[in-house]
């Protein structure tokens, strides 16, 4: 089933909105996800990511706008959407009182997969997520990482075209996170499956996603590849360097360089420069030192992060928002 949609567009979201009483959780959001793409929704808790994913997976009806998923309208043809998507919700929804094999087997039956095919598919998926040896273990006995892998296996039982992962690594230890990342990368590599994931981890979005939409207060404030998003932040690369001896005209020599946006003297012939060109600026600085026959005692380049992007577009840092609202409510995000 996991073949790319013929149009090349897996998900087409058109002015979708969701209101809970006075709260506009998602406000006229539009975007498209290409087939075979890993698309990330990045934002803090409460930004509207989970509400958005719940609307796209037909769990929550929108109050405005609509979307097509795998070519089917989420409002008018929800069952066709459900047949073509796999969902790994933010909350663990596997049954703790069933074994791993039973959890997958019963989910297979919900997709109409029965008999020998069901047994084969269960074994294949347990093997794929590295849980074959825990097939008969109760889900309640699994670690957080294993349970998340079980959830992923369950979401793949019917070989969906599009996989939705709502904060797939939240609450996992670093080793389990890396394991889930590898699995996500592998899933895209297989048959060009499309993945849409939400996260509030910058490194996760940066590492996994082809394109990232930055979500804040129910709106998409920026959408592009991680590289392009970082490049869109003016002067966001920071370079710190020390000359020996100091430059003849000090900061003025540095300000004359085309790559340099601003200079701050830190004392002891040390300067902090902001630049649009990132690491490429380093060559100009080396050439400057040579021209004045100075020694470059130290030079460090700090690249733009998605945190800088988030700060640039929203006016506040992602980590501070996440700390301020650590527990998303059910039905909202």
């Amino acid at each position: 089933m996991a073949a790319p949609a013929q149009s090349g567009i897996a998900i087409d979201v058109r002015s979708i909105s969701k209101r809970f009483g006075a709260l506009e959780a998602v406000d006229q959001v539009s975007f498209m996800v290409k087939s075979g793409e890993i698309f990330g929704l990045l934002g803090p808790n409460g930004a509207g990511k989970s509400t958005l994913i719940r609307m796209l997976t037909t769990l929550v009806p929108p109050t405005g706008g609509t979307a097509t998923v795998a070519g089917h309208d989420i409002i008018h043809d929800p069952n066709a959407v459900r047949e073509r998507i796999g969902v790994i919700p933010q909350n663990m929804t596997s049954d703790p009182e069933l074994t791993c094999a039973e959890n997958i087997g019963i989910h297979a039956r919900l997709y109409g997969i029965t008999g020998a095919r069901r047994r084969e598919r269960t074994a294949e998926l347990l093997e794929a997520v590295g849980l074959s040896d825990r097939a008969n273990a109760m889900a309640s006995t699994l670690s957080g990482g294993m349970r998340r892998r079980l959830e992923i296996a369950r979401g793949l039982v019917h070989d969906p075209q599009i996989l939705f992962l709502d904060e797939p690594t939240t609450g996992l230890d670093p080793v389990s996170r890396v394991s889930v990342w590898e699995m996500v990368t592998h899933l895209r590599a297989q048959q060009g499956r499309t993945l849409l994931l939400t996260t509030h981890y910058m490194d996760e979005a940066d590492r996994l996603c082809d394109r990232v939409a930055i979500v804040d207060k129910g709106h998409i404030v920026a959408l592009d590849t991680p590289v392009a998003l970082k490049a869109s932040v003016p002067g966001a690369s920071r370079i710190e360097l020390q000359f020996d001896p100091d430059l003849p005209r000090g900061a003025a020599d540095l300000e004359a360089l085309p790559a340099v946006k601003s200079v701050r003297a830190l004392g002891s012939a040390t300067y902090r420069i902001s630049s649009d060109r990132g690491p490429a600026s380093a060559q100009e600085l080396i050439d400057l030192a040579r021209a004045h026959k100075l020694e470059l005692k130290s030079l460090s380049v700090e690249s733009t992060s998605l945190d800088d992007v988030f700060l640039h577009y929203t006016g506040h840092g992602l980590s501070e928002m996440a700390e301020a609202d650590p527990q998303p409510q059910r039905g909202r995000a």
Partner: peptide, 14 residues
């Protein structure tokens, strides 16, 4: 309340 129903509702069960 444990979210198990959410797991069924994303499937094509009517």
């Amino acid at each position: 309340s444990r979210g198990l129903h959410e797991g069924y509702m994303v499937t094509p069960i009517t």
